[in-house]
Write a protein that binds this DNA or RNA. Structure first.
Lengths: 190, 190
DNA sequence: GATATGATCGTAGGGATACTTT
DNA sequence: ACAAAGTATCCCTACGATCATA
């Protein structure tokens, strides 16, 4: 993802062409510029079709990268990489970074429920970032805004800027054994 | 100045259209979007809007006050009711009533794109509740908080309590020809 | 300084409720 | 004066950039 700076008026023009809740700038601009979008969002695909498509492209991409064959095979054979638990549309629908953050973490947990506890070691100078209880996080700082990772017994600290949330994701994915390339992909989901 | 986040590929597309050393993003985008560099033009109609407009005028000409028969025929022949466009999980995921409200309206629009314009007649004492543009709603009151109904050319007024939002849904569903029982089901989705 | 981390506080959305109009 | 209907203010919560601190 890249950030560009544009003037107020142009910004309003883009915003006024939003066609879906939570639609991002890229999607709007691609429509306005009549560029192909990688994901066709208006097509009435059902869930199975979407999943099939996403998995296909995932395998394709990973298979092309021969330095990481071992890990790729492990993930794809067990079917347990985060990418199998990520729903792009659900992500896109989130109002802010916190929603996406939690969704990505939930996917990581679902893919690695047993190893997930290693993320517990990721923390700041004083503050804990991940824990099993809300209270632990609250006790480690002020206004940590703990949130439960959906469908998991873990909690995360949420009071940080987006940069730090990305860093947290990066560390978590790395701890769980993802390759540099996949870590990057995960980070960019936020 | 505003910052927007766009994907890598789109960024490259924009960069590759630079026409002067040091040209900024706004300037490039304005050229690509064919926007005047001094005065904001009104947003060009998108495909949906154009289609809706054409369809609307057709309906107007052919069936001015026989809307109901039209609808009944549509139900029985095509079997396209809102319930085919409602995704319960998506609904449940919404943070507040506004999100659900918009999703339900979007489903109603998808099920009845041609007849949907009848909802335009639903309004309060001064405020318009539904319209084709944000500006119309804004002009009809203060802080009306207009929101676009996703994937549709319609906008709704959003600054009301939940009770009124339910009422709006009830009226909309009724106008579109749903039975008392189905109207009730739709209302309760919110 | 320079860097890393913390957490305050400005901003925006949501919608109940107090207020206004009929 | 009272009620009903409708409006929009304003309080609350969430988010996360930015400034404070180590």
């Amino acid at each position: 993802m890249k950030n560009i700076e544009i003037d107020e008026e142009l910004y309003q023009h883009i915003v006024s062409n939003t066609q879906a809740i939570g639609e991002n700038a890229s999607s709007i601009l691609r429509r306005l510029l009549k560029l192909d979008s990688s994901v066709q969002q208006s097509a009435p695909l059902n869930k199975n079709e979407i999943e099939a498509t996403e998995q296909a492209s995932l395998v394709e991409k990973s298979a092309a990268d021969d330095t990481e064959i071992d890990i790729v095979e492990k993930f794809t054979s067990s079917g347990e990489s985060v990418f199998n638990f990520i729903n792009k549309e659900e992500l896109a629908m989130q109002r802010g970074a916190v929603g996406r953050f939690l969704l990505i973490l939930a996917a990581l947990y679902r893919a690695h429920p047993r190893q997930f506890k290693v993320v517990t070691e990721i923390c700041g100078r004083d503050r804990l970032y991940f824990a099993h209880t809300e209270a632990e996080l609250e006790a480690s700082g002020s206004s940590t805004k703990p949130k439960q990772i959906p469908e998991s017994p873990f909690w995360v600290m949420t009071n940080s800027n987006t940069t730090r949330k990305k860093m947290m994701l990066t560390k978590a994915a790395t701890s769980l054994g993802y390759t540099q390339a996949d870590v990057e992909k995960i980070r960019e989901l936020l």
